[in-house]
């Protein structure tokens, strides 16, 4: 279980990294925290000819208050986020979600940008950023662009990021501290990837729509129209079971899988909505 051989690059600046990525397009992988890429390489499921290690690029680290948003550098590690007073004060939902990520040793290395770029459908970070209405900042040698998380996760471990782009940051609209939220997931063991999870984030000035995200089930986390329809008014009492089943049936033609996933999603949704109540 040893990786294939590769050439190793350790750029010190973002422009250097982008130049390398551009030069070796298709043959290079960006190495951030490595907590997912390293196992994939060990199992030879990823076989990059070149590895571009961005861990020494300090510009990609840190959390900045940018007025209406927080900008989190791609190389910010999970534990840096958990220890950040800014996050604790302005973005408790993100801290709560990251508290469910794996274990302490993994959180010491794993980065928010790596998790978003890898887009594991069971991972907490992509789903939470989607629920928070975050925008992904992608940089290439020629331009910087922002991609709404709504448009970012486009398939199983696949994103709108282009081959020559590096995910450099995520911008998240600040949430009023009094606003409730709900993060709930079901994992077999502490620290495991979720079998299913639900995040509810009610609308506010910086995010005009109520957001409900389901993750751990389909190929990507998704905004659930059925659950978003249940915000306010009748709330979850007007149980959107049929609509939820339709959403699940997009991924599970087979009734049995839906029969197992649906009760779990219904249970989690009920509990999540209960948490929104003051």
């Amino acid at each position: 279980m040893k990786p294939t051989s590769f050439s190793y690059h350790r750029p010190g600046t973002l422009p250097e990294a982008l130049a390398l990525l551009s030069e070796y397009q298709g043959a290079a992988r960006i190495l951030a925290g490595g907590q997912s890429l390293m196992p994939l390489m060990a199992m030879r499921m990823a076989r990059p000819e070149r590895v571009i290690d961005i861990n020494r690029i300090d510009d990609l680290k840190g959390i900045r208050d940018a007025g209406d948003t927080l900008t989190i550098g791609a190389l910010t590690r999970y534990n840096d986020i958990l220890r950040s007073p800014l996050i604790a004060a302005q973005m408790p939902l993100l801290a709560e979600a990251i508290g469910h990520v794996a274990h302490h040793a993994i959180r010491n290395r794993g980065t928010i940008g790596g998790s978003l770029a890898l887009a594991d459908p069971s991972a907490e970070t992509p789903a939470t950023c989607l629920a928070l209405g975050a925008r992904i900042v992608a940089q290439s040698t020629s331009r910087e662009r922002e991609i709404a998380t709504d448009d970012f996760f486009d398939g199983l471990m696949s994103t709108a990021l282009e081959e020559h782009e590096i995910l450099v940051a995520v911008r998240i609209p600040k949430r009023p501290t009094a606003l409730p939220h709900a993060f709930i997931e079901f994992a077999r063991r502490k620290g495991d990837f979720a079998q299913a999870g639900i995040i509810l984030a009610p609308a506010h000035d910086g995010m005009p729509e109520n957001r409900a995200v389901i993750f751990g089930i389909g190929p990507t986390p998704w905004r659930s129209a059925a659950l978003e329809a249940a915000f306010g008014g009748e709330g979850f009492a007007a149980a959107p079971k049929a609509a939820l089943k339709d959403e699940l049936n997009v991924y599970f033609a087979d009734d049995e899988a839906a029969a197992f996933k649906l009760p779990i999603v219904m249970t989690l949704a009920q509990r999540a909505f209960a948490r929104l109540k003051p």
Partner: peptide
Amino acid sequence: GACTVLVDGDIVRSCLMLAVQ
């Protein structure tokens, strides 16, 4: 977790880090 070591004072999985890193 059998390969856990300290790198710059933090515990990490040493199988998930390249030696060059």
